[in-house]
């Protein structure tokens, strides 16, 4: 293999309450006027869109929700993986902003691959039980260690995700970032179908544990009911 790559969304913004701050770039940087929000059906009725639509309204931007005929100059995917998949596909060349509400849970690979701006704001996220997040991190991180494009870059992210996962004192917000890092690593590492390389041993070494120990710890995180 003569070349490998590491791909990131151009901008990843995070921290609780960052959504309106990050969106200010729609005006300051992207200079858009009409925003199409693509979201899941369930989000239309649960009040969770309000922080987004409120921020757009405050900036004086026109927007429409799930109305694909709306002549938009920017697309925001806001919701669960399905909505983000759809938004990533629909955005085309327009600025595409991904705002997952299920951080720590199901992921949208197209969103990680295509987003110009990826926003992780705990305030807009649907709470997911910590046990579920841990299980998800463990599975995604393990999967991210094998692939055709694994590298020290993806390993650094996978290992950091596991380091946070194994840290007994981790906070919910650290878990969300661990999940995001595992997803980022996974998205880059598995850029084609056949996993030709495996960094499981390197991961164990980087974490200062044996391969068996790492396997056990991952397995217990995948299955354990988190308390």
């Amino acid at each position: 293999m003569s070349m490998q790559s590491f791909r990131m969304p151009e901008k990843l913004y995070f921290k609780q309450g960052c959504l309106p701050v990050a969106l200010q770039e729609l005006v300051d940087v992207y200079q858009v006027q009409r925003v199409l929000i693509l979201t899941d059906e369930v989000m239309l009725h649960n009040g969770r869109l309000a922080p987004l639509t409120g921020a757009l309204y405050d900036m004086g931007l026109d927007y429409a929700v799930n109305s694909e005929s709306f002549a938009a100059d920017c697309v925001i995917g806001f919701g669960f993986a399905q909505a983000l998949d759809r938004a990533a596909a629909f955005a085309g060349d327009k600025p595409f902003i991904a705002v997952p509400v299920s951080a720590g849970g199901q992921m949208s690979i197209p969103a990680w691959r295509k987003a110009d701006m990826f926003i992780l704001d705990e305030d807009v996220c649907v709470p997911i039980p910590a046990g579920e997040i841990c299980s998800h991190i463990a599975q995604t991180a393990r999967a991210s260690l094998a692939g055709a494009n694994v590298s020290d870059y993806t390993l650094a992210l996978s290992v950091q995700a596991l380091r946070i996962l194994f840290d007994k004192a981790h906070t919910t917000s650290a878990l969300l970032h661990a999940a995001a890092m595992a997803q980022l690593a996974y998205t880059t590492a598995r850029s084609d179908e056949v996993p030709t390389d495996n960094l499981f041993e390197d991961a164990a070494e980087a974490l200062g544990m044996s391969v068996t120990e790492l396997e056990n710890q991952i397995n217990s995180a995948v299955t354990a009911q988190h308390t």
Binding site: M8, E10, K11, L12, Y13, F14, K15, G17, C18
Partner: peptide, 8 residues
């Protein structure tokens, strides 16, 4: 509150 952070 914490500042917004980024990874670019």
């Amino acid at each position: 509150r914490e500042n917004m952070l980024w990874f670019r």
